[in-house]
């Protein structure tokens, strides 16, 4: 979830045991993400069915035979769809977080370093946007922009950017007051030079730590929107949309239409979460 406030919660320096655990978390997270990335990049080359190819002979076929994970109500192969969907989900999540980081950092730097009127106006605008729970805002913006992968990148980035802006602004305001920034000013460096050489590099630690965690949240948002029909829609392959299509099957006891995409989603998000948690832990140790 988009809890960008917890960067400061990383806590005081701790023992070596914690550092080892942080490393374990980072390794486990990277391994899970590597596994998913490998599966969705290589896997589609190995399956017989295309992601939107209909097998007229099999609708809601259980796993086995020609369809290792069965088919959905339209007779499309679940395995092929799950693997293809991963490319879209991972791609959109990473792209949207990258965009949010760039947007948010720029705004946060501007507000934090300039201060005064610029800061006041920017912060009030962000206040308004942050007066909506993130997912509600995402719903509204998605309805406004319409579905499709490109628009979803924009939706998730726009919803996330204010939090990054706030995070960077707070950090900049702290760093701005540190002695080494004053030292740079005393040395006669220009405002922009000080900003670029001293303030920016020392203000990005929380962003670096939060971004992976945020990728997980972005995937969940994306899938949630598609689940509600506001994101990518069937027949396109996307995990949330696939789960949505299988909702009715669950009550009837047909697990295979919705459980596999959910598991893939879970493993990917967990990968990001473990990575992010590990980075937070380590940042807490280093700082």
């Amino acid at each position: 979830m988009a809890d960008l406030t917890t960067a400061a919660d990383a806590g005081p320096p701790r023992a070596a045991a914690d550092r080892r655990f942080a490393t374990t978390l980072i390794r486990a997270g990277s391994a899970l993400l590597g596994l998913v990335a490998f599966a969705v990049l290589v896997g589609p080359l190995l399956v017989r069915w295309g992601p939107e190819e209909i097998d007229p002979a099999a609708s809601l076929a259980p796993p086995g035979g020609a369809h290792p994970l069965g088919t959905d109500v339209n007779g499309m192969d679940i395995l092929s769809r799950v693997l293809h969907a991963g490319r879209l989900d991972l791609g959109v999540a990473i792209a949207s977080v990258a965009l949010a980081v760039v947007l948010g950092t720029a705004l946060g730097l501007l507000a934090g370093y300039r201060g005064g009127r610029v800061d006041d106006v920017l912060m009030r605008v962000l206040d308004v946007f942050q007066a909506f729970p993130a997912f509600i805002l995402a719903l509204a913006v998605a309805a406004l922009l319409g579905g499709g992968a490109g628009n979803l990148v924009l939706v998730v980035a726009l919803v996330n950017a204010p939090a990054y802006a706030r995070l960077v602004r707070a950090e900049v305001r702290t760093v701005r007051e540190l002695p080494f920034v004053e030292a740079s000013r005393t040395a006669g460096a220009s405002g922009l030079g000080t900003l670029w050489r001293h303030v920016l590099p020392n203000s990005l630690t929380p962003v670096r730590v939060i971004a992976p965690l945020n990728c997980g949240w972005a995937m969940l948002t994306l899938a949630g929107l598609s689940f509600l029909g506001l994101g990518v829609t069937v027949p396109a392959a996307e995990w949330g949309a696939m789960i949505s299509l299988g909702t009715g099957d669950v009550v009837a006891g047909r697990w295979w239409t919705s459980v596999p995409p959910g598991l893939f989603l879970l493993v990917s998000v967990l990968g990001f979460s473990l990575l992010g948690e590990g980075l937070q832990e380590r940042a807490g140790v280093v700082r």
Binding site: P179, F180, E182, A183, T186, G188, A189, R197, H198, P201
Partner: peptide, 23 residues
């Protein structure tokens, strides 16, 4: 102003804090 400021220099109380950690 920046040129004039360079004519006067400060040595800080907190020696480590007055150096940018990443430089």
């Amino acid at each position: 102003l920046r040129d004039l400021r360079r004519r006067a220099q400060l040595v800080f109380q907190d020696p480590i804090g007055s150096l940018s950690p990443r430089r």
